[in-house]
């Protein structure tokens, strides 16, 4: 199947990419995630790419798109677990993914999302509207 599963964890969505991406899958992921954020009213998205061995400019763009699109839908995106070799390559390629939050692993990413939610009091009111 050309789709990557998206898990819902409380008010966050978790995507773990465990296969080698090609363009079609990446595009599907973008669409699915945006739909899912809309449907669940998720406040944050965690994309775990620790098993991904390459990210090229297209996938980099998709990651950037997802971050921007989810921002519009009022959700923060954190890309977690990037491999050192992938990070070095992206920088050399000229794609430092500005505007995308990153974290070392899922746990740290989750903490980052929570602290970002907590630091924004306006958004906490929204939370009250959507109790779990």
């Amino acid at each position: 199947m050309d789709r990557i599963p998206i898990l819902k964890m409380g008010q966050f969505l978790l995507v773990t990419i465990q296969i080698d991406l090609y363009d079609r899958i990446a595009l599907n992921l973008e669409t699915d995630l945006v739909q899912m954020i809309h449907k669940t009213g998720a406040r944050g998205v965690l994309i775990d790419i620790s098993a991904v061995s390459i990210v090229d400019s297209f996938m980099g763009r998709i990651l950037g798109n997802i971050a921007t699109m989810s921002k519009i839908l009022d959700a923060e995106t954190v890309v977690v677990g990037m491999q050192p070799a992938v990070a070095i390559t992206l920088v050399e390629l000229g794609l430092p993914l500005n505007g995308v939050f990153t974290a070392l692993n899922v746990e740290r990413g989750m903490n980052l999302l929570q602290s970002r939610l907590a630091s924004n009091p306006d958004e906490e009111e929204d939370e009250d509207d959507n109790p779990e």
């Binding site: 363009d23 061995s53 390459i54 990210v55 090229d56 400019s57 297209f58 491999q83 050192p84 070799a85 992938v86 070095i88 390559t89 050399e92 390629l93």
Partner: peptide, 17 residues
């Protein structure tokens, strides 16, 4: 090495696209 491999394969991916 892993870093050079990653660079090579990423470049390959760009060109083939």
């Amino acid at each position: 090495g892993l870093v050079n491999q990653t660079k090579l394969i990423t470049g390959t991916s760009e060109l083939v696209r």
